[in-house]
């Protein structure tokens, strides 16, 4: 098994994705803390349990929040939270599948399996992102 080929230093895909992993982590912190704060302000202090609080933190779409016991959901059903949710979905899914790519490529040489895995991960990325955005917009 040959070692993984490492690209030349400088501005290339590996560098861009390295930076993306850091920045998307910070972006997810920002969206998550916004959702958590807003949820606490809008009534989660007294009316809810841990799972619902986490739903509001990470996935602020109405279909999630419908499964909770909050009475007034109006504050959570608007375009602002759909945009927040789509941001979270995009960063989360991309971060996750790029992480999968990094782990997989640590165990692959430059073989046909790496190409197949890359193709699979690329299509999984497109598919899951589109499905998630559809769920957010349809709920």
């Amino acid at each position: 098994m040959t070692s993984r080929k490492v690209a030349k230093r400088g501005f290339n895909l590996d560098y861009v994705m390295w930076l993306f992993m850091r920045l998307s982590a910070l972006a997810m912190y920002a969206v998550g803390l916004t959702g958590l704060t807003a949820a606490l302000v809008m009534g989660a202090r007294t009316q809810t349990d841990l799972s619902t609080l986490v739903r509001w933190t990470f996935f602020q779409n109405p279909s999630h929040v419908f499964s909770s016991d909050i009475v007034v959901l109006d504050n959570f059903i608007n375009q602002f939270w759909q945009i927040m949710q789509i941001t979270m979905v995009f960063f989360g899914v991309t971060h996750g599948l790029n992480g999968l790519r990094i782990v997989v490529e640590d165990f692959m040489g430059s073989t046909i399996w790496r190409t197949l895995w890359r193709g699979f991960i690329f299509f999984a990325w497109i598919f899951i992102t589109l499905v998630a955005i559809y769920v957010v917009l349809a709920s």
């Binding site: 996750g96 599948l97 999968l100 999984a124």
Partner: peptide, 14 residues
């Protein structure tokens, strides 16, 4: 934990 979350979140979305 990252791999586990990819599986859980992916399955949960679908």
């Amino acid at each position: 934990s990252g791999l586990a979350m990819v599986v859980f979140v992916g399955l949960h979305i679908i």
